[in-house]
């Protein structure tokens, strides 16, 4: 992997949440020793079932949470260390985030112009310039200038998500963390939003960390995909590779769950179950991230690695 190309490097990232004190203390490992890297101008998809730690990973990278351990580098600079005002402004002008819920993610008491323009106003841009930039951004996401004076509740879900995208894009970040940007939208609108993201990405040379659970969307959109299970990253591969030859049993289970549009094959579709206790024997060997073939990493033990290599031939 050519190191200089990596815009984001996550290594051994852990994020735990605790609740209660003393004997009632509960520790939840939301993200458990996750390492991956994202290259400049690529789209990295992060998939996995609900509650597997995808969102937490994204939020920890952008420092909505303080990481428990591990390091995150962005553009060569460590961004997981102590929070300073300088680091905070470095983060906020380089990484932006798009949120899942288009209703929840816009402040109901602010107009669209205030919402989209806030990032620029904070950076000391004059009001007139902010207005121009907001109008330009509104046109880019397919809204009109007149929409700037409106409040969020007057818009549909798809429009609001586009407003959310405009808010993230206006500060011209280098990377976008898109946290399930389409999962709250209906299918006809999903394509709109995905295409918009794609257009903007090409136009602005963005890097995108795309968090989702809809595998078809992720496949269409991402260059490389990481599969997460229970706080761990279990497989990282190029998008086509992952779909053509999934190796980790969890990835297979996940792919086998995609419904097929053809009723004849759909009826015959076999679902594979993933039971960690049955599928792995880690009593003697320690599992870790291993490269099975170039650019294809699987979380496995030594013997599993040999089995996978055999399988690939």
């Amino acid at each position: 992997m050519p190191e200089q190309d990596n815009i984001l490097e996550v290594s051994h990232l852990c994020q735990t949440f605790t609740s209660g004190h003393g004997s009632n203390r509960i520790v939840v490992k939301a993200v458990d020793d996750v390492s991956f890297s994202v290259r400049r101008a690529e789209t990295f998809g992060l998939v996995g079932e609900s509650g597997c730690g995808k969102t937490t990973t994204g939020r920890t990278i952008i420092r909505l949470y303080d990481p428990t351990s591990g390091t995150v580098r962005f553009g060569g600079r460590v961004i997981s260390g102590k929070m300073t005002r300088e680091l905070s402004s470095y983060l906020s002008s380089n990484i932006a985030m798009i949120f899942q819920d288009p209703i929840e993610s816009l402040n109901p008491r602010m107009t669209i112009e205030e919402i989209i323009g806030e990032g620029l106003l904070l950076r000391g841009v004059s009001r007139a310039r902010v207005h121009e930039a907001v109008v330009e951004m509104l046109h880019k996401v397919g809204l009109t200038e007149e929409h700037a004076t409106r409040y969020p509740h007057e818009f549909s879900g798809g429009q609001r998500q586009r407003i959310g995208i405009a808010r993230a894009m206006i500060i011209k970040p280098k990377m976008i963390i898109a946290d399930e940007p389409v999962s709250a939208l209906d299918v006809s609108i999903q394509a709109q939003v995905i295409n918009l993201l794609n257009d903007l990405k090409e136009e602005m040379g963005l890097t995108i960390l795309f968090i989702a659970h809809n595998l078809s969307v992720v496949k269409y959109f991402s260059d490389r995909i990481g599969v997460m299970y229970y706080g761990k990253l279990v497989e990282v591969a190029e998008s086509d590779d992952l779909y053509a030859k999934p190796l980790h049993p969890y990835t297979r289970a996940l792919l086998s769950a995609i419904p097929q549009p053809n009723p004849l094959t759909e009826r015959k579709r076999q679902r594979i179950d993933y039971v960690p206790e049955r599928d792995h024997d880690y009593s003697r060997e320690k599992p870790e991230m291993r490269e099975v073939e170039p650019e294809h990493f699987v979380y496995c033990s030594e013997s599993e690695l040999r089995a996978y290599e055999k399988q690939l031939g």
Partner: peptide, 13 residues
């Protein structure tokens, strides 16, 4: 709420 988180990621003090 997500809009508060969104504002935080934009660097709002």
């Amino acid at each position: 709420r997500e809009y508060v988180l969104a504002a935080r990621t934009l660097g709002v003090p």
